[in-house]
Design a protein around this nucleic acid. Structure first.
Lengths: 225, 225
DNA sequence: TCCGTCAATATCGTCGGACGATTTCATCCG
DNA sequence: CGGATGAAATCGTCCGACGATATTGACGGA
């Protein structure tokens, strides 16, 4: 009777493996937003049964990263400009809350953010896109860990943000990634310092940058609507 | 099975019907938080196959209202004090965002909130618990409609809040429900008036009341941890 | 040639059964 | 009384089947 869905149990199942595979495929570019997902093809590629695949797709559908239309199959969601705007508005509030809670946490807990900072510094050196993804993930994992709010990781639409990142990728330069990473660093520094106002301000600044970047993108990067 | 004459969207399927049935059962008290869900029993009760039921359970697991432990089955989540605190913190931020967006919307859109207000007034008269549930649902539906942010209804953990309400029910008096409904009314009025600050303040006040009520509840109302 | 109609196909939704894996529980023995 | 043990219950995964529906492409008439 644990109040929260099983953390370890759930990760050991076939459906979770499949869901992770697709999520990871989105991050690595193996799956592209808008791509049609045919059940028969995926069952062959992933070597699983249709039942398990459908459960995984239903799971991903709940996360909002695949859309399912009756008798027309599933496809990776492709965000419109409006979807992106709405997503960023919600995400900003939740990350702000996370930053506020984290900055108000105990000193030893806040020190965990140093790991994310170190990873960010390493990213500046090699500059691989894969490490950028890793940075992002490490940053948010660490932020949620320090914030110590079990509900935040559940509701924060980070998987949808991955979709957003995937759509931006062809248009985003390495410099922009570096700027974004610098934003993570500023948040982490404010959190480690225990400065609540600075942490919230850093989150706001990061999302302001992101919104500006989105505005500058061509229409081709978005779904119509 | 064959009784699906006019399916127009993805929301009209067996799995969705099952998920709705369980969600509704939680609201009406048919399912109690902590209750064990046996697949064989549910397939008989709902007259569906195990495949469809499992998809539905996976869906509800994604919404965070049922927990699934490998080889031990699914059960309705039961929130601990901490879970409740975390849930309310996140919910407050999202409802605040919704109220802010709604109050800043156009005048004709904001007028939609009058429907929710009328429903709230009707609730004061008959005072049935079922109508209280209806009020709550109508209020949030309307708020999200006016806020015009597609991401908000997706991420806002209202189903988990239903869990919370279900756990409170045995300890919540009718007067407290009325007080809560009055909080909805204040938010709606501020939204209709287009007063952003007042709307956000009303949300804050509502959650402050809720937190105070939670603190006063006995331990028996919560899962341990 | 263009466009509407209609059949063929691909794919999905649901079902039922099967088998191994694991937990749970009652039983038995020390 | 407590720990080992075996049976029952339940779950996870797979497979095959059938009807339902959307998509596609052929066909014929204007």
């Amino acid at each position: 009777m644990t109040a929260t869905p099983a953390p370890r149990d759930a990760t050991t199942g076939t459906t979770e493996k499949v869901a992770d595979a697709i999520r990871n495929g989105i991050r690595t570019g193996q799956f592209v937003p808008g791509q049609h997902l045919v059940e028969a093809e995926l069952t062959l590629r992933l070597q699983i049964s249709r039942s398990s695949l459908r459960e995984a797709l239903r799971h991903l559908n709940g996360d909002g990263i695949v859309a399912i239309h009756r008798y027309r199959g599933a496809h990776i969601c492709r965000l419109s400009r409006r979807d992106t705007r709405d997503l960023l508005a919600v995400l900003e509030q939740l990350v702000r809350l996370a930053a506020r809670l984290a900055a108000a946490s105990t000193h030893e807990k806040r020190a965990l953010m140093d790991a994310a900072l170190d990873a960010a510094r390493r990213h500046d050196e090699d500059g691989d896109h894969r490490s950028y993804i890793a940075i992002r993930q490490a940053f948010y994992d660490c932020l949620f860990e320090v914030a110590a709010n079990r509900e935040l990781p559940r509701v924060t639409p980070l998987r949808r943000a991955d979709l957003f990142r995937a759509q931006m990728r062809p248009y985003q330069s390495w410099e922009q990634q570096q700027i974004h990473t610098a934003g993570y660093r500023r948040i982490a520094q404010a959190v480690v310092a225990g400065n609540v106002e600075a942490a919230e301000a850093a989150v706001q600044a990061l999302f302001a940058e992101t919104r500006a970047m989105v505005t500058a993108l061509p229409d081709a990067a978005f779904e119509e609507g």
